[in-house]
C-alpha cells in the first residue's frame, strides 16, 4: 500500500472522501491537502451534497423513546466552544464565591444555557474549526458512546442540582444498568492541588468513592448500588481520600433517577 500520493492522486480521492470510503491514513492526508487546495474543497463540498441525497432517501421515523432520551441528555451535557474546549474553561473569569454550602437545592436546570453568551463570543472569535488532537477526539467519542449507552437503558433519567453560586453536578443514571454519568458544573479547581472527589452515599454504610471529578469532564460510574440515596462531592487532598475528610460542597439526591427505596 502506498502512503505517498502525487497531487493528481490526491485529487482523485475527493469522491471516496465524500463517501467516507478512505482508509484512516488516507483520510488524514486528504484533509490536510484540503486545507491548502481551494478547488478540492469546492469539489468535495459538491460531492458531499450529492452523497447526502443518498442519505435523504433513507429517512425513517426515529423511535419516540429516543427523542425523550436525547432531549433529557441535552439538559445535562456540556457543550464545546468553537475552539473545541469545554465551556467551563471559557468562563474562567466568572467571580467565585466561597460561600458554597449555603442554600444548595436540587432542581432541573438547563446547565448549558448559562454559558450561552460565552459560547457565542468564542464562536465569533474562532470562526474556523480549531485543531484538536486525535487523542482528544477519540476520548470525547468514547465518552459520547458511554453516555449514549447509559441513555439507551429504558429507565434512564436525568437530574441536576446546583447551589446559588452555580456549583453543582448533573446526572444521567439508569438503575437497571447500575450506571450513572456525572458531570460537574461550575465547580472550578480547588486550590493547593486539592481535588474534587465524588461519593456514593449509602444508607447505614460508609460512603463509597466513585473517583475524582475533573472540571466538566463526565465521570462514568458503574456498578452502583441500587439502594444509594445520593451523590456528594467533597474537596480532598491531591489523589483523593479513602473516606470524605470535609463536608460536601455539593450533594444530590438520587431518588428522582430511580435509586433508593
Amino acid at each position: 500500500m502506498t502512503t505517498l500520493f502525487r497531487r493528481s492522486e490526491l485529487h482523485s480521492l475527493a469522491a471516496p472522501y465524500a463517501l467516507d470510503a478512505l482508509e484512516p491514513h488516507e483520510h488524514k492526508r486528504f484533509e490536510k491537502h484540503l486545507r491548502r487546495c481551494d478547488s478540492c474543497a469546492a469539489e468535495v463540498r459538491a460531492l458531499r451534497e450529492d452523497a447526502v441525497r443518498l442519505a435523504w432517501s433513507t429517512a425513517a421515523p426515529a423511535p419516540a423513546a429516543m427523542r425523550d432520551r436525547v432531549l433529557m441528555a441535552v439538559r445535562t451535557t456540556p457543550q464545546e466552544t468553537a475552539s473545541g474546549e469545554p465551556q467551563a474553561r471559557a468562563r474562567a473569569e466568572r467571580p467565585q464565591s466561597r460561600a458554597r454550602r449555603s442554600g444548595f437545592s436540587p432542581f432541573l436546570i438547563p446547565l448549558a444555557s448559562t454559558t450561552a453568551a460565552a459560547a457565542l463570543v468564542v464562536a465569533a472569535l474562532f470562526g474556523v474549526q480549531a485543531a484538536r488532537t486525535q487523542d482528544q477526539l477519540d476520548q470525547e467519542r468514547a465518552q459520547a458512546r458511554e453516555i449514549a449507552h447509559v441513555l439507551a437503558a429504558p429507565d434512564a433519567r436525568a437530574t441536576a442540582g446546583r447551589d446559588a453560586n452555580g456549583q453543582g453536578i448533573s446526572v444521567v443514571a439508569s438503575a437497571s444498568e447500575r450506571t450513572a454519568v456525572v458531570t460537574g458544573a461550575g465547580l472550578g479547581t480547588p486550590s493547593n492541588g486539592r481535588v474534587h472527589q465524588l461519593w456514593l452515599m449509602l444508607p447505614e454504610v460508609k460512603p463509597r468513592s466513585l473517583g475524582l471529578l475533573d472540571g466538566d469532564t463526565p465521570l462514568i460510574a458503574t456498578g452502583l448500588d441500587t439502594n444509594a440515596t445520593s451523590l456528594a462531592v467533597t474537596v480532598e487532598p491531591s489523589g483523593g481520600s479513602a473516606q470524605p475528610t470535609t463536608a460536601p460542597v455539593v450533594q444530590l439526591a438520587l431518588e428522582s433517577v430511580g435509586f433508593g427505596e
Binding site: R48, E49, Q79, E80, A148
Partner: peptide, 30 residues
C-alpha cells in the same frame, strides 16, 4: 445507539458547524 450518539454530538459540537463549508443538513448527515 449510534443515532442517539450523533444527535447528542450535534448538541455538544454545534459550535463547530461552519456555514462556509456547506449546508447544515449536509453537515449533520455527514
Amino acid at each position: 445507539e449510534v443515532a442517539q450518539e450523533v444527535l447528542l454530538e450535534l448538541w455538544r459540537s454545534a459550535a463547530r458547524y461552519d456555514p462556509g463549508r456547506g449546508s447544515a443538513l449536509s453537515w449533520v448527515l455527514t
